[in-house]
Design a protein around this nucleic acid. Structure first.
Lengths: 209, 209, 209, 209
DNA sequence: CATGAATGAGTGTTCATTCAT
DNA sequence: GATGAATGAACACTCATTCAT
């Protein structure tokens, strides 16, 4: 009655679906925020709890362990990144030129790294290797996305053949991921950086005669 | 008697060539190794000590604090890197083409990052921000080196003008520094990677008509 | 039922009279006890914890640091001392003779130093200078109390004039504070000692003709 | 030959008697200095060694342990104090009035506590109880000295009878020992303080009719 | 005689985690 | 759902002490 469309029925179950998700999300947000601003070491359970007005012990009602929190931050981050970039590529018309598709993808990627709401990805670089390793599969899936993009470029003849994509893709992405680190210092906008990256990659900086 | 030329005689002493000569160096090596393989958090004084067959407290005979160890790893790493690259550039004939100079520099840079004996640089990305900040000046000096290299390229007309070097240089170096992370996975040699990086940077991957 | 007068009924609750009510207080008591009996160096967090049936780390739930514990012992001690002596003096009739007022003050002072429940003040002499310094202000306030007492004596003519009170007061108090140290050995009661101190101070030990 | 009286024969044995004593003395001095100025905790073997231009381990050639050093400082201090005061009393003419003898003794006592060269006694108050206890016997012997002095005063009728000397003596000495602590603050000279102590003890501060 | 180098026990402190309430 | 209180394992660091050289 209270809900006349099927989307969000009220009731005991519904509460469990919605409310916990909110608290979980708040905790994840808090943890991510701390990691981004103060580093992984500063992200203690007590600090996270304080940010959501709780005591440390209470977090264990929502998460089994600290690792679970961190892992979920990571996973959410990469998944969001994947979804956004995939969506961006898909939404472009099939006949859009490679350069355009690449630029769009790079822009989404970079703005997700730098953007305020998407701090999750920031987190990655601060994590100890053990934890990094656990998100490997998802990251590989994400790399596939880019691999496909470049492969399309080669297929359509817009990209010079002969490049080893399994080398080029991680090299390019690797460079891109470094961006937030120095974008803060240089003060360049993410659009500027995306343009630079794409232009450089496509045309190089060598003088043409 | 034991050696009539200045070269190292083989025998017990020869071992000294492999094992670091001083205890300080051995400790630095051990600490770097742990940071690289297991991350900064795993690099406890106990762990370092164990690797050099000591007890934790004994390290304090050689270093004033853990920070001193980490800082020295960093400094040595960047300084070595600077020296090697500077030397490489200087040793090339003045009239060497830009592409050649760039390739040489990139090769030294990458091999220093990846090479077994030069694991120091690996360390950087694992460090907490506080400690990173302390090596800033040296790192800026190193960036200057590359800035100069590119500026020369522009001056000689070998590089297309109009690129903002203060954006391009950190972007390029940032990408380069990511190399060790995935070179392990892809198994590519440092020469391959250097070639890829230079070719991509100079010519781009866009198809030429 | 369980108690028909206002006095504390015996039983489970009665224990609370002996054991300090709050954990904080229990910890302070334990720390003070150790300092008094075994000296400041013996007062480790582990030792204190053991006395309250805890592990060392747990103390940090109640106190921020060891210093906070020690400082609070000191402050509580001096404050209690101040309150008691001030109250004692105030409660005597205005026209009470100086000798009587002095004796009362000395008695309270000494019994506070020696008394079982008030071991806090014992602590002072065992502390490292750094920590002593922090309670200076309060101690000076306490000295003022005595200074006032003596000044009244001079004003009323009960005390010979011409004594430099700013020398006499610390000298007298200094002597008094040494009392617990040898009272244990000599076995004298605090009343005896108070009487001795007051008589000696007022009349001296020189023979009168 | 070099020694023409029997007191200090040269030879292997003599060296052992003299030289070591010098080094030993230097170490004791250094340790005492540190304790006086920076407290017992600051008096580490390394700190002491540094003050005599040595490394910590070398101290163990001269002393069996840190405790031995501290104990010797204490013993030397009390012994010197004993000798000085005893000598002072003995050197006064038999018929010197009690007041004069007392004043002389107090002056020597105080100046030994405060005087620059006699820092040993300062040390006592900083020591942990365990170590204090070990010098008990010597301290009791020193107390006897004063006990005798007062007993003589009683015997000659210069001191009012009826005082329990076994209470009075430690009380008086206890007060005296507190002197250095506040003499620094008040800036009074040791003569002033000695005069105050003696006058107060003999005549009291009560007004006489 | 003195040192360089090491050790072992111990210090204050932090933190993820647990659990009865 | 959340908290107060506690724990245990770890951490960086200090220090008296030992001993081969």
């Amino acid at each position: 009655m209270r809900a006349r469309n099927g989307k969000r029925p009220r009731g005991a179950d519904a509460v469990e679906t919605v409310k916990p998700k909110t608290m979980r999300a708040a905790i994840l947000d808090a943890a991510a925020e701390i990691i981004v601003r103060q580093g992984y070491d500063a992200c203690t359970m007590r600090a996270v709890a304080a940010l959501v007005d709780m005591k440390a012990g209470s977090l264990y009602y929502h998460f089994k362990s600290k690792d679970e929190i961190v892992e979920e931050i990571l996973n959410q981050g990469i998944e969001t990144l994947y979804t956004r970039v995939a969506e961006t590529i898909r939404s472009l018309p099939q006949e859009a030129p490679f350069a355009e598709r690449l630029l769009a993808a790079v822009q989404v990627h970079i703005s997700s790294l730098v953007g305020k709401d998407q701090k999750y990805m920031h987190v990655y670089e601060h994590l100890p290797p053990t934890i990094k390793r656990r998100s490997r599969k998802m990251r590989e899936k994400y790399a596939q996305l880019w691999h496909g993009l470049f492969a399309d470029g080669v297929a359509s003849g817009e990209t010079a053949d002969g490049h080893d994509l399994s080398l080029l893709v991680p090299y390019f992405l690797g460079g891109l991921n470094r961006v937030p680190e120095w974008s803060r210092a240089s003060g360049a906008s993410s659009e500027q950086i995306a343009a630079l990256a794409v232009a450089t990659l496509l045309d190089g900086i060598g003088a043409r005669q």
